[in-house]
Simulated scan of single mutants.
Amino acid sequence: MNRRRFLALAGLSTVAAGCGTALGGGASGAGGTRTLRYQGWTGQVIPAELAEGLGYLPGLRLEWVGNTISGPQDIQAAATGQVDFGGAFNGAVVKLAANGAPVKAVISYYGSDEHAYSGYYVRADSPIRSARDLVGKKVGMNTLGAHSEALLDIYLRRAGLPDADAEKVQALVVPPVSTEQSLRQRQIDVAVLSGVLREKAVAAGGLRPLFTDHQLLGPFSAGTYVMTERFIREDPEAVRTFVTGVGRALDWARTTPRAQVVARMTDIVKRRGRAEDLDPLRYWKSYGVAAPGGRVAEGELRLWIDWLAERGDIDRGRVRLDALYTNEFNAPATASPAASGR
């Protein structure tokens, strides 16, 4: 794979701004309740689901339409009106906007901190100990062209690996629930693990981290929820309720004892009745969002505009930073951004 074009292979094809399917919102139900369609993640409670479970989305009802394992797919679904909000790595959001999609980031929903991060793990007996050792090796991740591959590329570049060698590092798509097993069975050489799946894998032993995104970039919000510009224009109050509620849920998760958060998440998963494994939830530690209320920081998007433009993956002139995101609908946050000592 040519690493200088990998984001183009992520499925982030051009989405026409006038796409006829971008309907911009679900229907209103009895009593004026607004329905927001979305995609979830198996065995996980995303911030929007937590917000609903905590009662922070008055007048809104979330309608689950299925699961995704890919941020780029999720935000494409939002851009084309298949769902009303979707979330992805900020680089993928930038890429989608550069291709003409009428979307705007409204709140950060995941990131990297000392508790929540993406780790690039090898087997304990693996000879891989540096970027140079990755040449010709296979790295398994949930999707191409998103957070995991971007951080791998940064790691290789910071180590001074020549482009010709970096292109020999094979990034492969492996379903998240199978990534640990694929590593242990030697089908891949490196596994990108995060969240509860990382915690569960590490607890089982026999693995060691090569590097983490937190080590590379420090604490940062890595991904945002996006909505279409049409949705935002036509129902700003629904957007305000959603963004403020998700922000409150993020702050609640940051400042509430972990055991209490896990108990609430477990209850949410049980109640939705999708026959999911509850065990991974006990390993949850943090959403990793850097700013109080999930407010979007300009620099967290500029980083990826600069990086993508330098690589030739986007035309810088097609992306306006001020048009990429808004904090207009995020009520002033009061919670501390500091971790809660878990």
Rank of each mutant, 00 (worst) to 15 (best):
V196A: 09
S148V: 11
K104V: 15
E149G: 08
V169D: 05
I154A: 11
G91T: 10
K104N: 03
V103F: 06
Y110A: 06
M141V: 11
L134Q: 00
A171I: 07
A105S: 13
G111E: 02
I107N: 04
A98Q: 02
V83D: 02
S178E: 11
G160M: 09
D84R: 01
K168N: 00
A166E: 11
K138T: 12
H115R: 14
A150E: 10
R157P: 07
P127G: 07
P162G: 10
A101Q: 06
S182L: 09
I107W: 05
A124R: 10
R184S: 07
S130Q: 14
G136D: 10
S182M: 14
A164E: 14
V192G: 02
Y109S: 08
T80W: 01
D163Q: 13
K104Y: 03
D153F: 04
A171T: 10
R198M: 15
N90E: 12
P102A: 13
A124D: 15
I188A: 02
V174G: 05
P162R: 03
S118F: 04
H115S: 14
G111Y: 05
K168Q: 13
S112C: 11
N90H: 15
S130W: 12
A105M: 08
A146W: 04
H115G: 12
L96Y: 09
V83P: 03
K168S: 03
Q82P: 01
Y109L: 14
A116I: 00
Q181N: 07
P162I: 08
L144R: 14
D153R: 01
A92L: 10
L193S: 06
D84C: 02
F89I: 12
I188K: 06
M141C: 12
R132V: 04
A150Y: 08
V103M: 08
L96F: 10
P175K: 09
S118N: 10
S108V: 05
T179M: 13
A124Q: 11
E167P: 00
N99G: 15
Q181W: 05
A92Y: 01
N90Q: 12
G91Y: 01
I154D: 09
A191T: 03
D165W: 01
V192T: 10
A101L: 08
L151M: 15
S118A: 13
E114K: 14
A159N: 04
Y155I: 05
Y155S: 03
A98W: 00
E114W: 07
S108G: 12
G195W: 01
I154R: 11
K104P: 03
V122R: 00
Q170P: 01
P127Q: 08
K95R: 14
A159W: 08
L156T: 08
Q187K: 14
G145K: 07
Q170L: 13
S182D: 10
S148E: 15
N90L: 13
V135Y: 01
A191M: 05
A88I: 03
K168W: 05
S178T: 09
S182N: 14
S112D: 09
Q82Y: 12
V139G: 00
P162A: 11
S194M: 13
